[in-house]
Design a protein around this nucleic acid. Structure first.
Lengths: 254, 254
DNA sequence: CGCAGTTTTGATTCATCTCAATTTGTGTGG
DNA sequence: CCACACAAATTGAGATGAATCAAAACTGCG
C-alpha cells in the first residue's frame, strides 16, 4: 500500500531515462551520498551501486515502512522525512527505540533473524531508498570500502544504543530532555538546518517513550526549561535559547 | 600487561605444533565454534579462518580486555569466562551496557570510529580469541557465509540493545530483575549449564548499573523474591525456584 | 584474626507517575 | 470556510516506587 506512491515521484520527471530507471534510487545523483556511502568510490563502483539499489518508496505520515514480524529483505536509507522505530511487547508496552532522519539507515535489526524486530513509522511524509540486503552483501564482497562502511554504520547504531542506555539508566528527567534536545539540534545542523530552531515531528508521548518518561513529565520539564529561559516552546516548535545552559543541566544535575 | 599470560595457556601443551601456532586460536578445534562462526564451512574455509585468527589471551579477573579510547584493531570471541562492558561519562557516571559469556563477541562498538567506546572488564579469569578486524573483513569478502555471519552478530547486538532499552524505559524494578535472572538462566542453559542454579559473577552494584537501579534496590528486590519463594539467594548463589512466577512478574506487574 | 569490600535491612525523602480537569491544536465534513 | 470532534498538550494535586542516608551483618582474603 505504501509503495504505490513511488510512481508519482514528481522530482524525477526531468529524467529522460526509461520509466523503470526512474523508480530506482540513484546514489550517484544523491546529495546525501556521503551519509549512506563511503568516500572515494570510483565511477564504476558508483554505477554498480546504482544498479544494485532497489526502488525508492514514498511513505505517508503515519504509515509503516515495516513492522515487527515481517520478513526482512532490505534495509532502507532515508532520503527525506522523519521516522520513529519502536518495539511493542505482548503485554502492550511500547518503547520507541529511536528517531531517524535523512541520511540515516533503517532496518538493520532485521538481519539477525531474517525478520524485522521493530516497527518503523513515518512521522512526516518521507521517502526512502530500498537497499536489497543480499544484493548489498554480494556487492560488498567486491567493493571493500562498501563492506567496511556497512560495518561502520552498524557499529554506529550499537554505539548510539549504548548512549540511550546511559541516558535511560543514569539520567534524571531534566538531563534526558536536555540531552534529547541537544542531540536533535546537532543532527539537524549537521544536515544544514538551523541548530537552535526546529519543529518536533513526534508527540510528547513518543518523546516520553523514547526517554523512559511519561508524557506529562516531558511536558512539565519542557515548560520548566521554557520558564528558566533555556528554550522557547510553542507546541512542536522549539527554539534553543541557551545551549550552554542545557549542556550544564546534562552534567551538573546531580 | 593482560596478554602476558597467553604464554602459560596450560590446556595447549598437548599440541605438537610449533610454539607460535599454540598461541593462536584454532576455531577448527573449538567446541564453541557454532556460536562464533556460521554453519557449513568447508575444511579449507575453516583452515583459512584458523590462519586469520590472532592470539588467544588470558584475562585475569578484574583486568580490562580493552578500555574506552584505545585504538580499535580487533574484536574478541569469549572462549571461557565472563565479562562486563560499560561506558563512563566525563562526569563520572557509569553505565554497564552488558554482561557477556562464552561464545559471545566483544568489541564491535569500536568499528565505527576505530576507537573502543566502552570498557570490557573480566568478572572472572577468562580467555578470549583475538580476531583482527581488518583480516576478518578481508577474509569475509571470500567466504560469504562468514560475511553474513558478521552482519548477523552485529544485528543481534542491536536487537539485544533494544531489549535493554525496553527494560530500562518501561519496566519497574521487580520486572527488570526478573527479566535479568531469566535471561541469565536462558543463556547459561544454552551453554549446557544448569538453567535454574547459577553463580552471579557481578556485584549488586553492577547489576544495578545495568538495570538502572541502585544496589540497595537490587538487594531488596532479590530479598523479596526470596521471601516470596520465587528464588533462593545466598550472596552470589542463585536458584530459580519458580520460573513461571518470575515470568509472570515480568508481564503482570502493571 | 581482622579488615575491606559487599550485602542486607531500615527510615526517610524525593522524583516521577497517576489521575483528573482544562486548554489548545488539527483535521474533516457540512 | 466554519464548526465540530478528536487528538495533543498543559497544569494541578496527590500517590508511590525507588533513591538516599545510615547502620549492621556477612564474606572472603591477606
Amino acid at each position: 500500500m505504501t509503495q504505490i506512491k513511488a510512481h508519482s515521484a514528481d522530482d524525477e520527471v526531468s529524467y529522460s531515462a526509461p520509466v523503470l530507471k526512474t523508480l530506482k534510487a540513484a546514489c550517484s545523483q544523491c546529495n546525501l551520498r556521503e551519509l549512506c556511502l563511503p568516500l572515494g568510490l570510483s565511477h564504476t563502483e558508483l554505477d554498480r551501486i546504482d544498479e544494485m539499489m532497489g526502488a525508492r518508496r514514498r511513505i505517508k505520515r503515519g504509515a509503516h515502512l515495516y513492522s515487527a514480524g515481517e520478513p526482512f529483505t532490505s534495509i532502507f536509507a532515508i532520503r527525506s522525512g522523519f521516522f520513529k522505530t519502536g518495539v511493542i511487547t505482548e503485554d502492550g508496552r511500547d518503547q520507541v527505540t529511536g528517531f531517524q532522519m535523512a541520511g540515516e539507515v533503517l532496518g538493520m535489526d532485521g538481519i539477525s533473524n531474517e525478520l524485522h524486530t521493530c516497527d518503523a513509522v513515518a512521522l512526516e511524509d518521507s521517502e526512502v531508498c530500498t537497499i536489497p540486503f543480499s544484493e548489498l552483501e554480494r556487492l560488498s564482497t567486491e567493493i571493500r570500502s562498501l563492506q567496511h562502511h556497512i560495518h561502520k554504520v552498524m557499529s554506529r547504531e550499537i554505539v548510539r544504543d549504548h548512549g540511550v542506555m546511559m541516558l535511560l539508566g543514569t539520567m534524571r528527567a531534566e538531563e534526558r530532555l536536555a540531552a534529547f534536545l541537544l542531540n536533535l539540534s546537532q543532527r539537524f545542523s549537521a544536515r544544514g538546518y538551523a541548530a537552535n530552531e526546529f519543529h518536533l515531528r513526534m508527540t510528547r508521548e513518543e518523546i516520553g517513550s523514547y526517554l523512559g518518561l511519561k508524557l506529562e513529565t516531558v511536558s512539565r520539564t519542557l515548560s520548566r526549561f521554557h520558564d528558566d529561559g533555556l528554550i522557547s516552546v510553542q507546541q512542536k516548535h522549539i527554539q534553543l535559547i541557551d545551549q550552554a545552559g542545557l549542556k550544564q543541566i546534562m552534567n551538573t544535575c546531580r
